[in-house]
């Protein structure tokens, strides 16, 4: 059970989803007009990542990996289903999002109101699928590691979008060259934020 804390910090700051891998950029650029909605989407992403990554970890470990089926019977030990992982992961994510939507609607209408519009969008957010794929690539030893990684990545994403939204709010009052207004400056700010985050790597 060692290294969980480091893994959390590492995935939140150093391997930040947005700045190091450009994951979830579409919604990151589209839903960062003000801090409040950015916070809503950030929390939703955090939430869905935390649920889907450990679930996909278990599926990967006990069903899909090479030799993963050996717990069922010895004759299945040679089976390698890992080529199916893409389709299974995306199905799990879509199903989980649907399920979460229903659960939240039932138990916390207030939260549902706040997240409502964002939840369905999340099924096709690359950050979520990316989380599962990176989890598969890094071969975490236990499910606790994958959980820590998921929370860390989610928090990192949340941090990125809230910081970016706050900058964009201030940007309204600044004088930007005409051709650069809108998307152009948004990309450049993200790049600069990314450079700032590189500092965590020790550059």
């Amino acid at each position: 059970m060692s290294g969980l804390g480091e893994l959390f910090v590492r995935s939140a700051l150093i391997d930040n989803m947005v700045f190091a891998y450009f994951l979830g950029m579409c919604s990151y650029l589209a839903v960062s007009k003000n801090v409040k909605t950015a916070l809503g989407l950030g929390i939703a992403v955090c939430f869905v990542l935390t649920v889907t990554v450990p679930v996909n970890y278990l599926i990967d470990k006990y069903l899909l990996q090479a030799g993963a089926l050996s717990w069922m019977s010895v004759s299945l030990a040679g089976v390698d289903l890992s080529f199916l992982s893409l389709i299974i992961f995306i199905a799990v994510i879509a199903a989980m999002v649907q399920l979460l939507e229903m659960v939240i609607e039932k138990f916390s209408p207030a939260l549902y109101q706040a997240l409502g519009i964002f939840l369905p969008l999340i099924a096709v957010n690359c950050a979520i699928l990316g989380g599962s794929l990176f989890m598969q690539e890094r071969h975490f030893p236990t499910v606790a590691h994958s959980f820590s990684y998921a929370v860390g990545s989610g928090v990192g994403w949340l941090l990125a979008i809230v910081a970016f939204a706050a900058i964009r709010e201030r940007l309204r009052y600044s004088d930007i060259p005409k051709g650069l207004q809108g998307n152009g400056i948004a990309y450049i700010i993200t790049g600069l934020l990314g450079l700032a985050f590189m500092a965590f790597l020790g550059f």
């Binding site: 700045f19 190091a20 891998y21 450009f22 060259p177 051709g179 650069l180 998307n183 152009g184 400056i185 948004a186 990309y187 450049i188 993200t190 790049g191 600069l192 934020l193 990314g194 450079l195 590189m198």
Partner: peptide
């Protein structure tokens, strides 16, 4: 990685 974003920003410009 961040330079990719800045280059795209300039292309948009």
């Amino acid at each position: 990685p961040p330079m990719a974003l800045i280059i795209v920003g300039v292309l948009i410009w």
